[in-house]
Design a protein around this nucleic acid. Structure first.
Lengths: 111, 111
DNA sequence: TCACGGGTTCGATGACTGTCGAACCTATCA
DNA sequence: TGATAGGTTCGACAGTCATCGAACCCGTGA
């Protein structure tokens, strides 16, 4: 079954301002979610696979921030809600930003 | 007179973690300061030339955050305290990050 | 239809953070 | 030496924000 947009998510939000984007990835939990999405097939993961160490409700709050900053969107895959990183859109708006941030975040993760 | 390090600033701090750096530039006042420094000769400006719209004490608080994240250092030039952006060090640690962030910040500034 | 897994919203809370003015510090100059 | 410009530290404060559990919502399957 191909990815289906979540009900309230067509069309996707615009990529936010640089301030919004930096604020969104400036939180460690959110940066980690973005990093995992970036490394996942089709940049997509079930929500629950994007975080550890916080509660479901805290995670949900973080998802909202990422979504509203235009970094992610929601998709139903096989009946389960996934997050997809909109790296194409973000890269179009801020060339090189995600790459540099994620390279740094991955270095940190491996150290 | 060549730039002299401020008294408590030899050696310069290390460039901080990606979390620290993103947090530092995630504030609009601080991002603007970094943007101005990036565009200044030798990436250096008098402190007072790096901000508008906040008080001296607030600015000083922001300078401290930038400095402790390893993004800037202090220098006396002609008897006046300047800030210098350590773009070489930051670029060495996080290649492409500053460039992408500042390109985005400059786009925003010109719009 | 009911149960369940998975995610969202709400309200509360404590921690964090940007902000300011006052007092202070530093370098410079008359 | 005293004054000044420019920056720092301190304390206070209001607003923000990450966090949580409870209640709720949604999609799915028995």
């Amino acid at each position: 079954m191909p990815p289906i947009a979540a009900p309230d998510e067509s069309p996707a939000a615009e990529v936010g301002t640089i301030h919004e984007v930096l604020h969104a990835i400036g939180d460690p939990v959110r940066l980690e979610a973005v990093r995992r999405l970036d490394q996942a097939p089709e940049h997509m993961l079930p929500c629950s696979a994007t975080y550890d160490g916080v509660s479901k409700s805290t995670a949900s709050h973080h998802f909202k921030i990422l979504r509203e900053a235009g970094l992610t969107e929601r998709r139903y895959v096989d009946g389960q809600l996934h997050l997809r990183l909109r790296s194409d859109d973000v890269d179009g708006r801020y060339p090189g930003l995600l790459g540099a941030v994620l390279a740094a975040a991955s270095d940190t993760d491996q150290s």
